[in-house]
Design a protein around this nucleic acid. Structure first.
Lengths: 198, 198, 198, 198
DNA sequence: GATGAATGAGTGTTCATTCAT
DNA sequence: AATGAATGAACACTCATTCAT
């Protein structure tokens, strides 16, 4: 009878948005921005392709929105790990665990896509510069330095160590996230050998 | 001017084929099969796009041909390393060196593209199964076992160790090959810590 | 609160209809049937686009309804002018004044759109034939003949004179109604020179 | 055998371009930029829609190119008339003749479309400002002043006279060009009464 | 063998229209 | 009656592939 009230509408909109973003994240992460057709996202979200455009102006905007979210989420994830109890090595182990875990994979993979694919919107390129690896390096620096002082982490330039370590993790995530059976994720303990003092 | 004889024609054909395949390898490796337009390959090869179709029936065939070559080349590369002089650890170091080197990157990256992208021809999927990681694992197995016996390589299931190691290398190659400044390649020595007994 | 009775409902319906038609007239006249989006009409009318379809079955029907009204209105306008006091020349001056005035413009412009645009519903095309220029010519004929006899209007075939005159007015209206600054409306007196005996 | 030589290719390209532009002019002039589908132009030109994009980057570019040409052509047409032999009144008659003639119609109509339609590219809007009516007014000014001095043209502000006159002609062209039977073009002599001293 | 003009299937996006509430 | 979410047909444009020369 009466049209839906504001609250109901707002809820529907929010749910749909989430639904679309979830679907888009999956597809973009797997196929990249070029390889993803809007119709695929629509199918994955279980809606018509037309409806996508009620919620996002364009494929670019949808992609950009996701990258922005992914960057915020990945930063927060890292901060959370840093706030845990324990030795530096414990925290690095926790971080490694989380990253290699499938859970966060789509977000990281999306960022990888954004970093490496063609056809990336300019705005995303801007974002990539701001949230570059340097940021993560600077977040992790205190941790690694502390670990080195405690003798748990190998000596050497901490920034080189961190960025190399993150690159290894990134590489693994890319493989992992794409879900190719053929690759085998190393154990967390194995990866930690990269930085652990013996 | 006398017309070219058969042999000369054949040679021209072969040279053109090589030229096209070289160009295609570069572009496919960087942009994936979807992101690569036939015209890009033509430009890279310095020929008209029409001519591509005198040498390869389709984009798919060109891609498939390259993947086949890449697989053979990567196997050969690995065998060459194994035939070198030195301890197992020396050989593994040499292999790591080669893989992380930019030189061999396009072939490996192409295989990665083939492994992870969508829109891959069925024939390539078949190839991937035949030349899967298992093959490389079996090639490297004797080396790793010997290294473990010599006490240079960490104990544990050698197959797990090898496939994990190759996955790390693969991940790094993917990052490296795409030439993103942001990532930083670890040194060979750092990577070797993954498998070295301390 | 008692529910509204039938009469009140009817009145609301009629008011809404008028409101929509007024909005639609403005937008159609300015942008033509193709260039007009239903959502524009909804915004102009201050209602939701869904509601349009409670009152008009389709964009076509809305357009057709407006054209029908416009034709009736333009005829009535002409008849009113003819019923004024004064000499034939006075009446023609009054008619010219009204037509060049922005006031009546949207209706005339709508008819012009109907006459000249593509994508016009068949029903409208039928209407155009019935209410063609001939009709107006026949309405004005007595006036012009009288004016010629009085020596105020140039000699010659009155029908040719009238239809030419109306064409000039139509052309000016089209320019005028589209509100392009660049064009400059001639004064009524200047236009009258077309038909005035000197 | 050998590919076409440069000259032949150039000729094909030029012919095709002309063919497309001719077709596009007709369709745009009749239907406006929004109402024109690229497929219509392709059909009118007797080619595939894909080929349009070998010659023009987009619908916008095609439209803009045509407008630019139309402006140059209309200016040239006007200059040619001015260079004729005869009294000012002769020249104005010739100009009127030419404009009311169907020949130049599509170009003028295109400019009208550019002036009045929605969805006009920004570059065209810029062009419209440069080649505005003021330009034509200034071209015709000497002619009209001379005519006034000779007593052939009515007294009064020449610029007002000229711009009003051009507006009438523009309005007529719009009607004429759209080829609606219902409208009747006035004779040149009738239109000239607008400016002729009696 | 070589070129580039030509085609048409496929994708992103818009918008008239429907429908649950 | 009223709203706006939802649908899908239609259109601009791209690009793999074909073909005349």
């Amino acid at each position: 009878m009466a049209p839906l009230n504001d609250e109901q509408l707002h809820q529907i909109r929010d749910e749909r948005r989430e639904q679309i973003m979830g679907a888009a994240l999956n597809v973009f992460a797997r196929r990249g921005i070029i390889g993803t057709k809007m119709s695929m996202i629509a199918v994955e979200a279980g809606i018509s392709h037309g409806l996508l455009y009620h919620y996002f102006k364009s494929k670019e905007e949808l992609f950009t929105t996701l990258v922005r979210e992914a960057m915020i989420a990945s930063q927060e994830g890292m901060r959370e790990v840093l706030d845990l109890q324990g030795t530096p090595m414990d925290k690095i182990r926790a971080l490694t665990h989380e990253i290699l875990d499938e859970g966060g994979a789509p977000y990281f993979l999306l960022i990888h896509q954004a970093r490496t694919s063609e056809g990336i919107p300019d705005e995303v390129k801007q974002l990539m510069k701001q949230y570059s690896m340097e940021l993560f390096v600077s977040l992790l620096r205190p941790l690694f330095v502390e670990g080195q002082q405690a003798g748990d982490i190998v000596q050497g330039d901490p920034e080189e160590l961190i960025s190399s370590y993150l690159s290894v993790l990134s590489g693994l995530m890319v493989l992992n996230a794409q879900g190719i059976d053929d690759y085998r994720m190393p154990s967390v303990d194995m990866v930690l050998r990269l930085v652990a003092a013996r």
